[in-house]
Write a protein that binds this DNA or RNA. Structure first.
Length: 221
DNA sequence: ACCCAGGGTCATA
DNA sequence: TATGACCATGGG
């Protein structure tokens, strides 16, 4: 058993090996699970600090009411929007955030107009919307618009810190830029990598030492 | 009954 | 800059 270097250093080699192990253990994750690009950006808000199964219920309710279009959400009162998203929790907060986001999108000229934004400007615009923080913005950039932005979440931070690639107390931008600097700029890779980290986090270790969780984390040098 | 989930904002020191 | 309170449902 090799010991972890635990030198808190990111390297392309180590990030790639971690990715390979995750992919071998869990396979392709097919993110983001949605029928439309607009559904992705709505889901990105609804999933804030919320289990995905609850988001699915809210999304289903929105489809049922034909509310998964930009115009229909912009026309709808916030109180009315809060009703179908109730199962995803924080429904008053999220209704307001969705209204903020959709108003911004419309102000940019609609969903099609967003494609023409350069990634830094797009990201800055999203972060300017009240209720859209770095992780939600990056979910939207990567999973709805295929931009090469690495999504950092608490699982990413925990896993990289546990394996000794980072300290763990770095701020969001430091981690995102550090990871991006050590991976090829490939949206498909970023897509699968983040999804695999989330998948791995949900894996319960059976303690036997030969489960997928242990395979990914074991003797990582 | 308790804990957490695919976060973010705001008030306070 | 750095904590803490707050938002709220549903599954383990």
């Amino acid at each position: 058993m090799d010991k972890y270097p635990n030198d808190q250093t990111l390297s392309e080699d180590r990030l790639k090996r971690l990715y390979n192990r995750l992919y071998e253990a869990y396979g392709p994750q097919h993110w983001w699970p949605a029928d439309t690009r607009f559904e992705v950006i709505v889901g990105a808000v609804l999933t804030q600090n919320t289990a995905w199964v609850n988001v699915e219920k809210a999304i289903a309710g929105l489809w049922r009411l034909n509310l998964l279009t930009l115009d229909n959400i912009n026309r709808l009162d916030q109180q009315m929007l809060a009703v179908p998203i109730r199962p995803s929790g924080y429904f008053n907060v999220k209704a307001r955030r969705l209204k903020n986001l959709c108003a911004w999108v419309a102000g940019q000229g609609g969903m099609e107009a967003l494609e023409k934004l350069d990634t830094p400007g797009f990201r800055a615009g999203l972060l300017g919307v009240n209720g859209i923080g770095p992780e939600t913005a990056d979910d939207i950039l990567l999973y709805a618009f295929d931009r090469p932005v690495f999504v950092v979440d608490t699982y990413t931070r925990r896993l990289l810190a546990k394996l000794g690639l980072v300290k763990g107390d770095e701020d969001y931008e430091t981690l995102r830029l550090g990871i991006e600097a050590n991976l090829e700029e490939n949206p498909a890779l970023f897509n699968e990598y983040h999804a695999l980290i989330v998948r791995h986090a949900k894996q319960r270790c059976d303690g036997a030492g030969d489960c997928r969780h242990c395979y990914v984390e074991g003797t990582f040098g």
